[in-house]
Every structure is written in structure tokens, then in C-alpha cells.
Design a protein around this nucleic acid. Structure first.
Ligand code: SF4
Ligand code: SF4
Lengths: 137, 137
DNA sequence: TTTAATTACTACCCTAAGGTAGAATTAAAT
DNA sequence: ATTTAATTCTACCTTAGGGTAGTAATTAAA
């Protein structure tokens, strides 16, 4: 009942990029130092974020990363989806083969309530809001 | 954001044992057939459940399993704890190193709300209630 | 006493996640 | 041109979860 390391790292990475206003670009080294994320693992994530178009990379000396899609338009839900980490509608609590509205398991109603709440939180939390003033990252 | 297969299986196994009133004992073969859980994997789980004292096993021909602790006193939370699958209080959504009441991440308040709700559900759901009349298992 | 049905034990195998190592590529600075 | 700082690519390692195979131990029935 938790997010993968990759998802958690990504949320913090992107939020840190929002807060980095000094120059336009930020390097993998800086991010790794800021967030205490293993450098080699971070670069692997970065390459994936470039591939899917969340961010852009500039190679070579003085290179680094910057947003391609604005941070206000990237949600936590988007990130979870990218890393196959989101709560799927059909993926339910006891994973019973044939379950539907008529035949429920005992946990169904309560689980659905929490599930919707979490899905809403993920969908409504943008990277910009994560990075907002005063929040720990 | 989901339970492990082992936890899901265990919940369904124990609930199925409650519903099995024919004789006192139920065998691994029956449980495996009833629930479509791989036989060998199921027996591995059963041995663990015996070890921790939820159930008792009778070996040899006509053997099988029965409850040691009553089903009304085993909760879903107990099972999740056994398989290291529960939502720990200190294990929070973004897993940031140093977080406390003063310095929160943006998701904190909403996450805490869902977390408490889920923990409550797990703690209050007994195997007996899971197995209650009309519930899918 | 043998046989069949059962649990328990030991030892694997496979996959995905997390992580690491090293070299190749790029491009600015010197 | 050379050096240096950066990203990217390829290939691997380790661990935990999920699952399988074979066999030993146990016990009631035949
Ligand atoms: S009854 Fe509901 S909670 Fe239970 S397995 Fe089906 S969909 Fe999931
Ligand atoms: S601020 Fe709250 S939700 Fe965020 S990491 Fe800390 S305890 Fe978890």
C-alpha cells in the first residue's frame, strides 16, 4: 500500500525543478545532491521523463534539464500512470476473479470510498502545487 | 497501491474456512480448488498460518486445517501485519527523509485522511465479517 | 501391514524493481 | 584542438515476491 520509489523520486525531482529558478537549466548532479537520490538511478529516471515529453534535456557542458510541459499541467496522477503505479479502477482490494456491483466482497464499499479519495488527490495535485511555498520536498 | 497476493490469498483462505461447516477440517486441496489458488503456493501460506497460530493443522490422511484463534478475533489488519503489508504510521506518501508536523509535503493532510480511513477499515474487518452471508469471496 | 491422503520441508526458478558500472556522445569553455 | 562537464546507452547486479518440484513425514483407512 505505497508508491514505488521511482514515483516518489519523480514527484520530488519535478517539484525541485520548479523551485530551481536560478538559471533555466538544472543538472542531474544538482538534483541528485539536492534530493539525495542515487545519481545513476536519477539519470535513468530523467531519460524516461525526457522520452515521454515532461521535460527537455540539453546535452554537453552547461547542459541540463528544463520543463517542456508546464508544471501546472503535470499531475501526480500522470506520474503514477507513467510508472504503472496508479490505482486502477478495476484493480480492487481483494482481487477476486468475478466481481461486480451485484456480488461484492465485505470490504468493497469502504475500499471504493478510500480509492476515490486517493484517485482524486492524485488527479488534483499538480507538480506546481507540490512545489508551492512552504512545502517540504 | 495494493495488497500483496499473499495477503489477498490469506484473507480469502481464512474466510473460506469459516464458511466450510461440513466437517471440522478442510484440506489444502479443497481450499486450492475452491479459491483457485495454486496448490503449492497455498500450502506454503498455510504452513506460515500454522506457525503463527492462526490455525492448527492435522497431518496425515483425513487431515487438514481448522481455526485455533476464532475468526471473529482475526482481523484483516492482523494478516497485513503478518505479511509486512500494512500501512505503517511512519511510512508516508512521499517518503521524505525528515518530515514532521511542522514541515509537511503538499499531500500530507489528504494522505493522512485516507490513511486513517484505510487503517480503520483493516482493523475493524474481522475474518468473520469478511465471510458473512452474501459476500463474495 | 500396506496404501492412500495428507501436511511439511528443502531447494529451486522467474520476474520486476531498484540500483550500479563503464563507456559513448555532445557541446561549451579554454 | 583539447579539455571538461554534461546527458545517454548498454549491460549488468541484487533483492523480494510469487510460484514450482520433489520428497519426507505422518496418520487413517483398507
Ligand atoms: S467486491 Fe469490490 S473490493 Fe471486493 S474484489 Fe470486487 S470490486 Fe474489489
Ligand atoms: S509530509 Fe506527511 S505525507 Fe509528506 S512525507 Fe511527510 S508525513 Fe508523509
Amino acid at each position: 500500500m505505497h508508491l514505488s520509489n521511482t514515483s516518489k523520486y519523480t514527484i520530488r525531482i519535478l517539484a525541485n525543478m520548479v523551485n530551481h529558478k536560478d538559471t533555466t537549466l538544472i543538472s542531474a548532479k544538482e538534483l541528485s545532491d539536492n534530493l539525495k537520490i542515487p545519481y545513476k538511478f536519477l539519470t535513468k529516471i530523467m531519460t524516461e521523463l525526457v522520452r515521454v515529453g515532461f521535460i527537455e534535456s540539453i546535452r554537453g557542458r552547461e547542459g541540463g534539464y528544463k520543463f517542456l510541459r508546464p508544471a501546472s499541467e503535470i499531475t501526480v496522477g500522470d506520474i503514477l500512470e507513467l510508472f504503472n503505479d496508479s490505482i486502477k479502477d478495476e484493480e480492487c482490494i481483494l482481487g477476486i476473479d468475478s466481481c461486480n456491483a451485484k456480488q461484492k466482497c465485505a470490504l468493497h464499499d469502504k475500499w471504493i470510498k478510500s480509492k476515490i479519495q486517493l484517485q482524486k488527490m492524485f488527479k488534483e495535485s499538480t507538480i506546481e502545487s507540490i512545489a508551492a511555498e512552504g512545502n517540504k520536498i
